[in-house]
Every structure is written in C-alpha cells, then in structure tokens.
Amino acid sequence: MGFMEATLSQYFLNCSSGEGCEGMREVLLNTGSTIEEGRLAKGGNKLGPEYVEECAVCEISHVDYAELGFPDRVRIWTPDRKHSVAVHARPARSLQPGQIFMPRAIWSNLVVDPDTFSTGSPLYKGSPVIIEPTQEDVLSAAEIVRRHYSRGKR
C-alpha cells in the first residue's frame, strides 16, 4: 500500500471496505483563492447568485469525473459524515486523480477538517473528504447559513 493510500485509509474507515460506498470516491480537498471569488467577495457580493456560480463548485480530476459518471452536481462529505454540501461539479485537467479543488468560501469550509494540529490553522489544504454524485440543489450562502448555522438564532 502506497503512502497516500495509507494516509487516506486512516480517514475513511467507513468506506475502506468499499461496502455501501458505490459511486463514492475518497479524495483530498484543496481549497484556495480564485480571482473571481476575490472580485466578488471584495465587491460585497457574497450573498448574490454570481457568488454561488463561482464558489459552490468542485473541480474534479477528469479521470475521477468520468468514473463518477460525469455528474452535474456532487455532494461532499466529511469522513465522519457529520457535514456535507452539494455543489456544481466540473472536470479539471489541472488536478491529479484523487484530488479535488474548491474555491475558498462557505461551501468548501463546511467540509474542511477543523483540526489545527496545535497551530490554530485548520486543514484548508489536503482535507480528506468523500464525494458522490447527487441530484440535490445547490444552496446559496444565505440558505447555508439558515440551514446549517442558525441554531438558537433566527
């Protein structure tokens, strides 16, 4: 078993046998800046539809994308299945198989590993996640806040 597989299998105990995990893939999530995310965020547009189109997106290596059946949307789960988010799926040649990229925004941060390894900084790069094709709608940033974060308020 190679190093990466060993690393991944530590995190995906539920799926390492493959049982009940058809159509799913265990991947590493890389989040980061995109110039359009920056333009929209700095322009005060975080609650608008353009921001959803730019940021509620998951770029998938074209190899994995084909194996997932060319989905329009995917659901991304944390390995412990506590959090998940549906986003638009796009194939990307810039990525190696086993990796996905999402713009840094409320959608990607829903599934980023909150452990900071005693540094104060979460795993914005290289978080283990599970992706699967989905038919579910992609929520706007305001809907995410209402559905996931408004406990006790509003």
Binding site: G44, K46, L47, T78, K82, H83, R104, A105, I106, N109, L110, V111, V112, D113, P114, P122, A141, A142, I144, V145, H148, Y149, S150, R151, G152, K153
Partner: peptide, 27 residues
C-alpha cells in the same frame, strides 16, 4: 468567520452572542 471557518466553528458562532463590524452583508 462564518464563511471561512470550518462548520463546527461557524455553527458555534450561531449559538453565542456576536458583534460584527463590517462594510457589507455576509454570512
């Protein structure tokens, strides 16, 4: 912070009193 912190942190911000200084609406 609600957009850029992981879910467990953002969700706790939804439970405690919070004051914010900002120029535009955001989560």
């Amino acid at each position: 912070l609600v957009s850029h912190f992981p879910a467990d942190c953002a969700s706790y911000l939804g439970e405690i009193p919070m004051i914010c200084i900002d120029i535009a609406s955001c989560p």
